[in-house]
Structures are given as structure tokens and as C-alpha cells.
Amino acid sequence: MTKTASAPPPARGGAQRRKDALTRLEHDVDLWAATASPDGTPCMVPLSFAYVGGAVLLCTRRTNPTARNLLAGAGRITLGLGHTRDVVLVEAVAEAVEEAELRPGEGEAFVARTGGWDPRGNPAWLFFRCHPRSLRTWREENELAGRLVMREGAWLV
């Protein structure tokens, strides 16, 4: 049996796209994190996150390729939320954050978002605070125009 695609809904305006992207950032639990090693070897993994104070807070083992790539380079990371018909794509710069450097409420927000998983107190884990530089969001081909809603860390809508 073949399923046929239905017509896409009308394209959203910029303000609605921003609102929908923020809803994903504030309510989703996991995302895809893509980094590259200094020699260009790509790495993409699923990670849990919390969106706190306009930044995406991630945590991974210090020995994992994601942490090694971010520490060895300029901290560039691409974050993907949603599915292929509701994409939020964030280009960000990540800073390594030791547990003692977490801002008030960040650790608690991360634990709450991840359903109680708490890497604090385990020195094998390292947090990364990812500062969005650009954000694109689209659902279907009719939303490709206007998909850039943040540039250089500033909302365009």
C-alpha cells in the first residue's frame, strides 16, 4: 500500500516560526549534536539538553568525541531538533562549563529536563553551554524561503 503525501499546510510567518522554535527548545528533551574533529572527521550524536537563559546546555563524557571536538576546536556545534518535516537547526558556539561554573538554576533545569538524570558530582562528565549564532526552521518546501530567523545571535523576527 502506498501512502500519498497531502498538501503541506500554509507557510508560517517569521513570528510564528520563532515561537514554534522556542517551544521546541523549551520542551523537547533530546536533540542531535554535530561536531567535527580538527582533521574534519564528523560526529553526530543524540544528547539530552536544557534551554536555559537563551543557551542550550548539554552534558557528555569528557572522553566522548563530541567533548574532544569542542575542546580541540573553536567550539562550533550544530544542533538539530524536530523531525524532517519540522526542523529547527541551530548553529552555535559552545563553551565548556565545569560543574562549579554552572549558573544558578542551570544544573537543576538540566536534571528536571532529563527526567532526573544528574551528571553533577561525576568528574567524568562535562557540561557545554551552547550560544546560538543562527537558527533556521522549516516544515516543508514552502517554508524554505524565510527559514533563517536568527543571525549572529540576534532574532530577525
Rank of each mutant, 00 (worst) to 15 (best):
W155P: 04
L70W: 04
L25W: 05
L102H: 04
T66M: 13
F128I: 00
E140F: 13
G40S: 03
D39P: 10
E101S: 15
E99M: 10
G153M: 02
K19Q: 15
G73D: 06
D20P: 05
G73K: 09
P10G: 00
W155I: 10
A94R: 02
L47Q: 10
E101F: 02
G121A: 12
D118W: 06
D30S: 13
E26P: 02
V87G: 00
A92V: 12
G54M: 05
D28P: 03
A94P: 01
F127G: 05
G53N: 07
D20G: 00
R18C: 10
L144C: 04
E91L: 03
R85G: 13
T78N: 08
V157F: 15
P65V: 05
A145E: 12
A55C: 09
A55Y: 02
A11F: 01
G40C: 03
P123A: 15
W125E: 03
A67S: 13
E143T: 09
L135E: 01
G115M: 12
G54Y: 03
E95C: 02
T35D: 07
S134D: 10
E26Y: 05
T84P: 11
T63M: 03
C43K: 04
W138H: 12
P65Q: 14
T35F: 05
A100R: 15
E140M: 05
T41D: 09
L58P: 02
L135M: 11
R12F: 06
L58D: 01
P46I: 01
P8G: 06
R18W: 08
T63D: 04
E108V: 11
T114G: 12
P119C: 09
K3C: 08
G75D: 08
R120L: 11
E108F: 11
H27K: 14
A15E: 15
A92F: 02
D20L: 13
L135V: 15
G75W: 04
